[in-house]
């Protein structure tokens, strides 16, 4: 069991498989996303592997965007996760 856990950890370390988000005061960092489903100045919906993230706020906009990461800027009021 322990070995298996270590293997997963090692795999994740090498290939960045884990998806997560980090919330700062006026920023939100999304790592490993699949698709940007909706984008407006008040709402952003992002799909990750196992969940959908719904972000609500004001003056929302994308600051940086790569295939793997998103950096969202604006006043964030609510972040909701919907697991499938």
């Amino acid at each position: 069991m322990k070995n298996l856990h270590f293997k997963e950890y090692f795999k994740n370390y090498l290939f960045d498989l884990e998806d997560f988000i980090t919330i700062y005061e006026n920023h939100l960092h999304v790592f490993n996303y699949q698709k940007l489903n909706k984008l407006s100045d008040t709402e952003i919906i992002i799909r990750q592997k196992s969940k959908v993230i719904m972000i609500e706020g004001t003056n929302l906009k994308i600051k940086q965007m790569t295939k793997q990461e998103l950096l969202i800027l604006g006043s964030i009021l609510k972040v909701e996760f919907k697991y499938e």
């Binding site: 984008l39 100045d41 600051k63 940086q64 965007m65």
Partner: peptide, 21 residues
């Protein structure tokens, strides 16, 4: 329309380091 453009940019997998509207 800033937002519709960004959805399209995301769809075709464009990397954006910075942007200004």
């Amino acid at each position: 329309n800033y937002y519709s453009v960004f959805i399209k940019l995301n769809d075709i997998g464009i990397t954006i380091y910075d942007n200004k509207k």
